[in-house]
Design a binder for these strands. Structure first.
Length: 265
DNA sequence: CTCAGTGTTCAGTG
DNA sequence: TCACTGAACACTGA
C-alpha cells in the first residue's frame, strides 16, 4: 500500500474521519518495534481526549495535528495501512493503534510485516525523519536546470536515485519504474549522464504519474491502461506491456526493476 | 524450504 | 563529507 499516493489517500481518510473531532477512545497494542520503543500507555496517554485539528504529509510520512503536543507521525513501511469502520469486529487482525471519535467511527493503523513506524514528536515536519526528506512531487519539483544540477552529482543508476527519499520524497518502486517507462529511460542509466531533455521528461512524467495516482485516490483500477503498472507483475513467464513489448525484470541495487528494453534507452 | 516483496537504516568502502 | 552497496530488519505467501 505505501507510496506517496497511498499515503496521501490515508491522509485524506484521516482528515475526513478525524479532523475537527476529539479522540474519545484510543487503544494501542504492545509493540516496541512499530512504536519505536514507546509503550502502549504512552501512546494512549498522548492521544486520548485530544482534538484533531488537521493532518499533514510529506513523502511517505503523515502525522496528526492535535490540540496538544506531541503529535503522532506514521510511516507505512512495506505493509502498513489504515482502516476505517464502525463495527469493532471489523478491526483488522494486525492492528497496532485504534482511534475512536464521538460519532462512532474507528480508524485503525495495521501492519503485518511491522516495517512501519508510529512515533510521537513535538513537531514532526521539522524533525527527522521528515525534515531530512527532499522534494515531494505533489508539492512541487525544482525547475529543470536545478534538477539537472542535482542529478549531475549522482553517478548511481537513475532507478535507485529516484528511490532516494532525500531527493524525491514519496517515490517508491512502482512509481520509479512507471516514470522511467513513460520517460523512455533505462533504469541503469547513470543519473549524471541524463541530458537536459531527458531530465525534463523525467520531471514531467514524475509529476503527472503522482498527480494522477493521487487524483484517483491511489485506486490502481483507475490508472490509465497505458501504464506499465498493470502489466509489471501480472504475466507469468512472458509478460508484455500494453503495446506487446516484452517486460524484463532484474535486480538493481537490491530492488526489482521492471522495464521494457524496446521502449527504454 | 527458499525467495521475493509498493521500504528504511546502518556499516563498510572508496 | 559525500556517495554507493549490500545486508539486516519482520513476516507472509508463492
Amino acid at each position: 500500500m505505501p507510496e506517496l499516493p497511498e499515503v496521501e489517500a490515508a491522509r485524506r481518510l484521516c482528515r475526513k474521519r478525524l479532523a475537527g473531532r476529539r479522540l474519545v477512545e484510543v487503544a494501542a497494542r504492545e509493540d516496541r518495534v512499530v512504536f519505536a520503543g514507546l509503550s502502549p500507555q504512552r501512546v494512549v496517554a498522548a492521544l486520548r481526549g485530544r482534538r484533531v485539528r488537521g493532518v499533514g504529509r510529506k513523502g511517505k510520512h503523515f502525522w496528526l495535528e492535535l490540540d496538544r503536543r506531541p503529535w503522532p507521525s506514521f510511516h507505512f513501511g512495506m505493509s502498513g495501512w489504515l482502516e476505517a469502520y464502525r463495527d469493532p469486529r471489523q478491526r483488522p487482525a494486525h492492528w497496532r493503534l485504534e482511534m475512536v471519535t464521538a460519532d462512532g467511527w474507528r480508524l485503525a493503523y495495521a501492519d503485518v510485516r511491522r516495517f512501519g513506524r508510529v512515533r510521537l514528536q513535538a513537531d514532526p515536519p521539522h524533525e527527522p525523519p521528515v525534515s531530512l526528506l527532499g522534494f515531494d512531487p505533489l508539492l512541487g519539483l525544482p525547475p529543470v536546470p536545478e534538477l539537472l544540477a542535482l542529478l549531475s552529482r549522482r553517478s548511481a543508476p537513475i532507478k535507485p536515485v529516484l528511490l532516494d527519499q532525500s531527493l524525491f520524497a514519496g517515490v517508491g518502486n512502482w512509481i520509479a519504474d512507471e516514470v522511467l517507462y513513460q520517460a523512455g529511460l533505462r533504469p541503469h542509466r547513470p543519473a549524471s549522464g541524463l541530458t537536459r531533455a531527458e531530465v525534463a521528461r523525467l520531471r514531467s512524467r514524475l509529476t503527472a504519474v503522482v498527480r494522477h495516482a493521487v487524483k484517483v485516490g491511489a485506486n490502481s483500477d483507475r490508472f490509465p491502461r497505458t501504464w506499465l503498472f498493470h502489466y509489471r507483475w501480472g504475466g507469468q513467464k512472458d509478460p508484455h506491456d500494453g503495446r506487446g513489448q516484452r517486460i524484463v525484470r532484474e535486480t538493481i541495487r537490491g530492488r526489482t526493476a521492471a522495464w521494457v528494453p524496446t521502449r527504454q534507452r
